[in-house]
């Protein structure tokens, strides 16, 4: 089979390319000829360069302002940039699942979301996925000719090309469609320091057991270079903002390391973190369900265990 064009929708914040996009470009290289699709203001040279270094031969830019927030406008932009591509890869977020569905409705493509990998078998895309709170592995074959796959962050290692390569920036002609939905108001969320929760290699989460004080959880996250997560109970209490919630209805995370502190491990929470590489839990209750899925469980008070662990890790880092 000749190399098919594989489009990767670029996630970007403040002009910077997000990590999962580079992961998806790396995966795209194993499927065909990668092109990147950039929706928004014109990408800066360094963004184009980083996409090129990860395999994008072209960066197709669709210029869009605030209306890019409307799912139908955004999906029309993606469609305009992918008329010649058989495969479209996205990062699995709630917004992108909606885009995937809209694009599939327009093209007849088959869709898999929350995938952890994709390959070509007998001319069709096959994907890997874990479902049911990461208790089952499922292989799905996209029987339709066109495929759209939304991939979870941290499931492919981003690797730059050996040889330096440059991507060509091309502007795609696009006129935003009228939509029955309209955007009334946008209230930006203050972005925290560091990588977003969904993309972090390390996540340290605190639950009800923190009693509302996230100092130790934050300190541990800091020394491990990770992001801070929380349970629904903690965000409901207003101890920490909603963006930090890990779980089936919050953010799904698949970091190399997940540390759960004062978290019981309810099925809703587990559904969003059970596929993590290594899982460590600290909980007073030896019967907490989170211990059933932890590689290391410490039965103890987080107020004793965490300060000691933080001190030891700081020493290690300083050494």
């Amino acid at each position: 089979m000749s190399a098919m064009t594989v489009a990767v929708l670029v996630e970007h914040r403040d002009g910077q390319v997000a990590g999962p996009t580079l992961e998806n470009l790396t995966l795209a290289r194993s499927l065909g000829r990668p092109v990147a699709v950039w929706i928004g203001e014109e990408p800066a040279d360094d963004a184009v360069a980083s996409l090129g270094a990860h395999g994008a031969e072209e960066v197709r830019w669709v210029e869009l302002g605030g209306t890019a927030r409307l799912p139908k406008v955004r999906s029309a932009a993606l469609a305009a940039a992918t008329t010649d591509t058989r495969i479209v890869l996205l990062t699995s977020t709630f917004l992108n699942k909606e885009l995937a569905a809209l694009l599939a409705l327009a093209t007849g493509a088959g869709v898999v979301v929350d995938a952890s990998g994709a390959r070509i078998v007998d001319g069709r895309v096959e994907t890997e996925q874990t479902v049911f709170a990461a208790t089952w592995n499922v292989t799905t074959r996209i029987v339709a000719e066109d495929a759209i796959v939304a991939l979870r962050p941290n499931t492919t290692q981003a690797v730059a090309l050996d040889a330096p390569a440059t991507a060509v920036l091309e502007k795609v002609a696009f006129e935003a469609p009228e939509t029955p939905e309209s955007l009334v108001h946008v209230d930006p969320v203050e972005r925290g320091e560091g990588v977003p929760l969904s993309e972090a290699r390390v996540v340290v989460s605190g639950g009800r057991g923190t009693n509302g004080d996230y100092t130790l959880v934050r300190d541990l996250a800091e020394v491990l270079g990770g992001a801070v997560g929380a349970t629904r109970d903690a965000t409901d209490e207003g101890w920490i903002s909603h963006e930090h919630m890990v779980g089936q209805t919050g953010t799904t995370v698949t970091p190399a390391l997940y540390v759960g502190c004062g978290i019981s491990g309810a099925v809703h929470h587990r559904g969003g973190m059970q596929a993590s590489g290594t899982i460590v839990a600290v909980n007073l209750d030896p019967d907490a369900p989170i211990f059933e899925i932890a590689d290391l469980g410490i039965v103890g008070d987080l107020n004793d265990v965490l300060p000691q662990a933080i001190e030891r890790l700081r020493e290690h880092k300083g050494a």
Partner: peptide, 15 residues
């Protein structure tokens, strides 16, 4: 998998 009860050095075990 291992579950260890903290007997004063739980943080060190974790680290």
């Amino acid at each position: 998998r291992q579950v260890v009860t903290d007997t004063g050095d739980g943080g060190v075990v974790l680290a």
